[in-house]
Simulated assay, not measured.
Amino acid sequence: MTERGAGALWRDRHTLRIGPSQVRWDGQTLVIDIEEHGAVLPLNVRGQVRVTPMVYGQRRFRLDPGGRHVWEPLAPCSRVEANFTDPAIRWSGTGYLDANHGAESLEDGFADWQWSRAHLKDGSTAVMYEGQLADGSDFGMALRITPDGQAEVMEMPAPVVLPKTAWRLDRLTRADPGYTARLRATWEDTPFYSRTALATRLWGEDVVAVHESLNMKRFATGAVQWMLPWRMPRKV
């Protein structure tokens, strides 16, 4: 990912282009063409990711009472294909696509959040989303999104505290009572964000979940803002 100025942006109904990279919808598949440079080492990152929805979400959700922040599970279950030339990587599997949008920046609206999703045997997707707003109030929901895209509100499973990350970021997830979720892998570990693979149990079913922790208070600190360009190049 590269931060760029307004002159690098172009869009129409089906395409969003930022610099040499773009996201386009061809009617069935979201095609993501990537041509970037890595950081800290400026190595080429070139390839394509194709996201083909198998389930379309039918609802969007307000995350705060005033509706300033909205979350939408666009394609809770998708077929994903990744094909990169730099580096040479190919992968395919089951994925997920959602969107957050709102009337203010995330750091103005949230203190933190914990999110996870897991695909169930019947084709449904389990999604847990909870956290604290910037004013100190809590939000949270547990959803079972069925193969027809309907979101069924479920009772929130029991909380499970996960080990802190290497940056000492708190991680919390949910699992059936009496079950302790365990870490399978930590894919992303930064001062304010982590992404993790978990083995857990939800509503009587053993699942592999993708989990993220986000701390916007940390994100807004001067030290983290100073470090960001080292991980995300900026071209104005």
Rank of each mutant, 00 (worst) to 15 (best):
10 W>Y: 14
216 M>A: 10
70 V>T: 15
11 R>T: 11
192 F>K: 12
33 D>C: 03
191 P>V: 06
86 D>M: 08
141 M>N: 11
7 G>F: 08
162 L>D: 01
157 P>I: 03
94 T>Y: 02
22 Q>V: 10
184 R>G: 05
117 R>G: 01
72 E>P: 05
1 M>S: 06
35 E>Y: 10
132 Q>M: 08
205 E>T: 12
47 G>M: 10
32 I>D: 14
24 R>L: 08
216 M>P: 07
80 V>E: 03
145 I>E: 06
155 E>L: 06
204 G>L: 02
76 P>A: 03
29 T>R: 14
196 T>V: 12
233 P>V: 14
102 G>R: 03
98 D>C: 13
41 L>W: 12
141 M>L: 09
129 Y>I: 09
29 T>N: 14
47 G>T: 10
46 R>K: 13
192 F>D: 15
129 Y>F: 10
70 V>I: 15
98 D>Q: 00
90 R>T: 09
108 D>Q: 12
83 N>I: 04
140 G>E: 02
4 R>V: 02
42 P>I: 15
111 A>D: 15
82 A>N: 05
61 F>I: 15
191 P>M: 01
178 G>L: 06
39 A>E: 03
114 Q>A: 03
138 D>C: 07
138 D>I: 05
130 E>D: 07
226 W>D: 10
219 F>E: 15
183 L>A: 04
135 D>N: 12
98 D>L: 09
61 F>D: 09
58 Q>C: 02
181 A>V: 02
180 T>Y: 10
26 D>Q: 02
88 A>Y: 04
229 P>G: 14
61 F>K: 11
138 D>T: 12
64 D>M: 02
53 P>S: 14
46 R>Y: 11
14 H>K: 15
139 F>H: 01
85 T>D: 13
171 R>Y: 01
114 Q>F: 05
33 D>S: 04
121 K>E: 11
165 T>C: 01
48 Q>W: 05
205 E>C: 04
28 Q>I: 10
49 V>F: 02
122 D>F: 06
111 A>C: 09
49 V>E: 13
209 A>Y: 04
116 S>P: 03
179 Y>M: 14
60 R>D: 11
72 E>S: 07
229 P>H: 02
11 R>S: 11
39 A>T: 15
174 R>D: 01
203 W>C: 03
26 D>P: 09
146 T>Q: 15
107 E>N: 13
141 M>W: 04
82 A>L: 08
193 Y>S: 00
204 G>C: 08
157 P>H: 00
186 T>R: 08
38 G>R: 11
118 A>E: 00
130 E>L: 03
24 R>M: 12
147 P>E: 14
21 S>A: 01
236 V>K: 12
118 A>V: 00
62 R>M: 13
22 Q>I: 04
176 D>A: 04
73 P>T: 15
234 R>Y: 05
160 V>Y: 00
87 P>T: 09
225 Q>I: 08
81 E>Y: 01
147 P>L: 11
182 R>D: 12
135 D>C: 09
152 E>K: 14
67 G>I: 09
100 N>A: 07
106 L>W: 03
70 V>F: 06
200 T>A: 08
54 M>V: 15
93 G>H: 03
57 G>S: 03
134 A>M: 15
106 L>F: 06
152 E>R: 10
152 E>A: 09
10 W>P: 08
232 M>F: 13
198 L>P: 10
136 G>F: 08
14 H>V: 14
226 W>F: 11
69 H>R: 13
91 W>L: 06
111 A>Y: 10
122 D>G: 07
94 T>S: 05
186 T>L: 05
217 K>M: 11
